[in-house]
Design a protein around this nucleic acid. Sequence first.
DNA 1: CGGAAATTTGGAATTATTCTAATTCGTAAT
DNA 2: ATTACGAATTAGAATAATTCCAAATTTCCG
Lengths: 142, 142
Amino acid sequence: MISLANKKNLKPEDFPPEIEGLRMTRQRREVLAVILRDRDHPTANDVFLRAQKRMPTISLATVYNCLEALVTHNIVRQVNLERESSRYCPNLSDHCHFQDEKSGKIHDVVFKEGVKLEDILELPKGTEVSHLEISLKGIFGK
Amino acid sequence: MISLANKKNLKPEDFPPEIEGLRMTRQRREVLAVILRDRDHPTANDVFLRAQKRMPTISLATVYNCLEALVTHNIVRQVNLERESSRYCPNLSDHCHFQDEKSGKIHDVVFKEGVKLEDILELPKGTEVSHLEISLKGIFGK
DNA sequence: CGGAAATTTGGAATTATTCTAATTCGTAAT
DNA sequence: ATTACGAATTAGAATAATTCCAAATTTCCG
């Protein structure tokens, strides 16, 4: 996994020509930069609006295309909460999402030290987990 | 919580006039009976098609209305997997959902004895969880 | 440079769900 | 029973997110 998750003030130009086998086009750079910049779990449309600022000609369809490419190449993660629009998250480490009912903000939540999901679920022998999503809603403390 | 989860061969007529404070109309009975009968996590449209068999005049809008009423009164649970249509589940006990990639079937998965989600997540003090959803995908063993 | 392949684009199409306004139903009082 | 009223149902239109499509553009490579 490439460590983009912590690079904060990355400009689109700073990305290498290829990430995780995905050719970085101008639009993909822009979309990725948007997601890395604010880290607030934007929807595709949010990304579109932000990307448009620097690249007024980008289209929504392209944003969807870029997001799909980034997701399938494991460069960003797609987050689905209830029936809302998908959101996009640059944090690739194991974590889940908590949506605060007051602010609407989405927080990343990590597992306690050493906890593995397979340890806590009653899964039949031979089960292979390829995808896992945990989402919570409520009042986020602090 | 009313123990409908285990009643299997329930006919619509068998329901009391009111469940969890929700008046049971003819359509709501039918929708609930469908969900209790097959327990295969049908979508709204699946429910519609099945309900139509016994009640040819029921409309899709009504199925959506009934499902919403049943969900908000905690009589059935709404299950969201990725971006697919919502599905509906009569099992109200704590559990999560595993979608088998081969068959497409959805399996209920329970926590191991004594595990509480709050114990395994790093949540800030004062956090109140009102809603929780865990979904998995992969090859389901056995 | 020249052609093939990949990407982008705008708009149309699709799909699940919600909305709306009119009708019907159910209940309870007369 | 009849009436009246609020709740529920209905069909169809509307909406919203996403995907599809076909044409235009860009990129890559020899």
